[in-house]
Simulated assay, not measured.
Amino acid sequence: MDVADLAARASRDASGVPPELLDGYLEDLAEVSTTGVQLGPDRLRARHDVGARAAAQGVSLRGLVDLYLGATRLAWPVLPGVRRAAGAEAVRVVGEAVFRAADIAVTALAEGYEEAQRWAVRREESFRREFVDDLLDGRNLAELAERAERFGLRLAGSTVVAAVRAAGPIVDGGDVSRRVETALHLRLGSRDVLVTTKDGLLVCVAPEAMGEAPDEFVRQVAAAMGSDAAWRVGLGRPHPGPGGAVRSFEQARHALDIAERLDLPGPLHKAADLLVYRVLLRDSAALADLVGAVLEPLRRARGGAGPLLDTLDAYFASGRVATACARDLHVGVRTVTYRLQRVRELTGHSADDPRQGFALQVAVLGAKLLGWPATALPSPGKHQA
């Protein structure tokens, strides 16, 4: 039996799958055909290893199976056990042994191949997770640009990051993240956008040049989440270089925090539009002093500070129009004017006076940002990020 010739012919029939991947298989069949003894653990381990090697070389599983089945077919007439068999019964016995050996050999090949594929996927996921963590935590910046190319992301220009926060954490590989990633790549026709998760948030990292990416991301999140789900998107500002992503991501998270504290309407909240609130929070001790000095007397009102604080918030939001404020609060206009009068009596500040009204408005914003009155104000000298 010319093993090399048989392997070469089987390779040609299998569209050029390397004949080296047979790696002793034909010799195993020859031995089984004469002894009838099936392949032992060592020989099956060899097939398992060949399957893993084929996966690493990029050979398809179908091509590998074609190689082995073709080799079995070509070898059958010249196997020593077949040539020596006398009579139909002897040929049948040899055939059962040989084809059973072929069956378990191909099974071992497939197991090795699939195990290698699973390991490659897990390793790729691990590399991706490590890259995402470094990218959004700002670690190993010197290596990020080179590593980013592996995931289709270019960090040479400016990068913008959007982050979604939902009622529950969004997990990597979950239904929402998969649907958004697939749809976004199809819509944009580009792999330059990275969709991933971080700390329970769904995150989109895109080049600033792809100006349509954030809006398309929001549309796909809405489609994946459904109309009943509660979620918000924070959008950071674009920043250049490998460190730009972490800066934009932090801004997106701050935008989410501010939007939740102020209960801002709409799904998309841009960091560029919320800079004034970040300025207020930058000196939270001074902000707490203002809230305490201006609004603390509201606690003495019947029903506490809450209704009066809500009225002030709605009054300023409506452009200081009492009828619009009453409509938003679902109360009468007289209720609004009464509450505003109580605010003036308790605090000494009138919502309609330009200077006093400005102090009231900033204090109301500060109260919402600091969670007052439900949360105690920070102690003097204690800053809050």
Rank of each mutant, 00 (worst) to 15 (best):
D5I: 09
L6N: 06
A7T: 05
D13P: 00
V17R: 02
V17T: 15
P18W: 08
L22M: 07
D23P: 09
Y25I: 09
D28H: 11
S33R: 03
V37N: 12
Q38P: 14
G40V: 00
R45D: 03
A46F: 04
A46D: 08
D49S: 12
V50R: 13
A55G: 02
G58F: 02
G58C: 03
V59L: 02
L61S: 11
V65P: 00
Y68F: 15
L69M: 10
A71T: 09
A71L: 06
L79F: 11
P80T: 07
A85T: 05
G87P: 03
E89G: 10
A90G: 00
V91T: 10
R92L: 07
A101W: 05
A101Y: 05
A102W: 04
D103I: 01
I104C: 07
T107V: 08
A108P: 11
A108F: 10
L109F: 01
A110E: 08
G112M: 06
E115G: 13
E115K: 14
E115N: 12
Q117W: 09
R123S: 13
E124G: 13
E124L: 15
F131K: 06
V132S: 04
D133Q: 02
L135F: 06
L135C: 03
D137N: 01
D137F: 00
R139W: 10
L141H: 08
E143N: 08
R147C: 06
A148S: 12
R150W: 11
G152T: 13
G152H: 08
L153H: 05
A156Q: 11
G157I: 06
I170F: 05
V176W: 00
S177E: 15
R179L: 10
T182A: 07
A183F: 01
A183M: 01
A183K: 03
R191D: 15
R191E: 14
D199Q: 11
G200F: 07
V203S: 12
C204D: 02
M210H: 01
E212I: 10
E212F: 05
P214H: 04
D215P: 01
D215C: 01
E216W: 08
E216Q: 12
V221G: 00
V221A: 01
A222W: 06
A223L: 13
R232E: 00
G234E: 01
R247W: 08
S248D: 07
F249K: 09
H254F: 06
A255G: 04
L256F: 03
I258M: 00
A259L: 02
A259W: 01
E260S: 14
R261Y: 00
P265F: 07
P265W: 03
P267F: 01
H269N: 01
D273M: 08
L274Y: 02
Y277K: 07
L281P: 13
D283R: 09
A286F: 04
A288V: 14
V291D: 14
G292M: 11
L298N: 15
L308R: 12
T311G: 15
G319L: 09
G319V: 10
V321E: 14
L329H: 06
Y338E: 15
Y338G: 15
L340E: 15
E345S: 14
G348N: 14
H349P: 13
D352F: 03
D352V: 07
P354N: 10
Q356K: 05
F358R: 03
V362K: 02
A367C: 14
K368Y: 12
L369Q: 02
L369C: 03
L370G: 13
A376Q: 11
A376S: 13
